[in-house]
Design a protein around this nucleic acid. Structure first.
Lengths: 203, 203
DNA sequence: TTGTGAAACCCTAACCGTTAGGGTTACGGT
DNA sequence: ACCGTAACCCTAACGGTTAGGGTTTCACAA
């Protein structure tokens, strides 16, 4: 399925990594605002234009692995057990993501992000995209021909949960408070069937 | 209470308005991206530095009246009737705001906003601020000493409702779908008291 | 093997939003 | 009438980003 990548693609990936590493190192050393694009390019020993052919913006250098986030959410919907209801599956995944970025090792990065308005704003718009693709994924899972308002709504709520929990002083407690609210909202759309002889897949 | 403004303040307000008008005119004429700050300043016959002393950024020229938005939401919470529950009051206000910006007269502006990533991103971060102050307002209304996770959550949900309804093909239908979900989420936090002899203010 | 097209990369020069620095005018209060 | 300062102006720059146009390096096939 995946061919062994040729020299070309390996070099490209190496360049990308070299840039990302240099950027992160400088950012943590001197602070996001104190590091210029030209500094990063010099440190990574590439041209500025090369840097921008790998990353769309300075902010994107910080959120290098954001496709992960998107994929993990959509897969949490698609790959869950055949009888697992939607919201708990999303809750597990969001919980894992929050724990991942509130870990001690990630703390300096998130401190930097929280300190920079530009980065916060960028993250916001990233989340909007994530909510959109989550909504699509949920609609597909429900067998809908297109994303409905309810799908979009619940997707937003779930993304809100991530961002609120991440910023909360006690992320676990925040999760425990937010997700029951999301559950309730979801039940308005897909009422849980009474535990009678109903064998259909829970929503 | 409000003194008649002196010549100075009148001139300042006039300058601000002149800039905003020039900007809007040019934006609608040529498109947001095709108009430079220097163009706007020239059209308004002011220096670039003057423009930036009235507006914090190019995007802010488009969202001139955003403090309105924030105030109307917080006031919808604070100024509602003494027995009106929280969510319906917010629903009314959001509905009015959505109708206001989906009116035909506002259509070209919002088409422009939707077409520009920079403007969409700016609006997003505006909304985050609005959600924060709405959360504060809700917490105050509930007599809480500080904003809790539940307040922040419901505030986000309400702001989401605004943005989802605004973008929906049928904003009214979207409102009818989203707000029952928010009601349900809110009931998890503040269960509606049974309609017995309970005379306390509904939440 | 060698030729060829394209991808990755480089450099220079600019564009555009935004800000610093430092000046002038005109209003408001004394 | 005077002074402080708010509003305004100009010039020059900074920093992210892109256009234009060139060179190297790889993948693939003739």
């Amino acid at each position: 399925m995946t061919e062994p990548p040729g020299r070309r693609e390996r070099k490209k990936a190496a360049t990308r990594q070299k840039i990302a590493d240099a950027a992160l190192r400088l950012f943590l050393e001197r602070g996001y605002d104190a590091v210029g694009i030209r500094d990063i390019a010099a440190e990574a020993d590439v041209a500025v234009t090369t840097l921008f052919s790998h990353f769309a913006s300075k902010e994107a250098l910080v959120f290098e692995q954001d496709q992960d986030f998107e994929q993990r959410l959509t897969q949490a919907v698609a790959d869950r057990g055949p009888h697992e209801p939607l919201i708990p599956a999303l809750r597990r995944e969001i919980h894992a993501l929050v724990r991942h970025c509130t870990a001690d090792s990630a703390a300096p990065i998130w401190r930097m992000i929280d300190a920079s308005p530009a980065l916060r704003q960028y993250e916001e718009s990233m989340r909007l995209r994530h909510a959109d693709s989550l909504a699509t994924s949920i609609a597909a899972d429900l067998g809908l021909p297109q994303t409905t308002t309810a799908c979009r709504t619940i997707a937003r709520f779930v993304i809100d949960a991530y961002s609120l929990a991440r910023e909360a002083p006690d992320p676990d407690a925040a999760m425990d408070e937010i997700f029951p609210m999301i559950e309730a909202a979801w039940e308005v759309v897909c009422p849980i069937p009474a535990p009678t002889g109903d064998r259909s897949r829970p929503r």
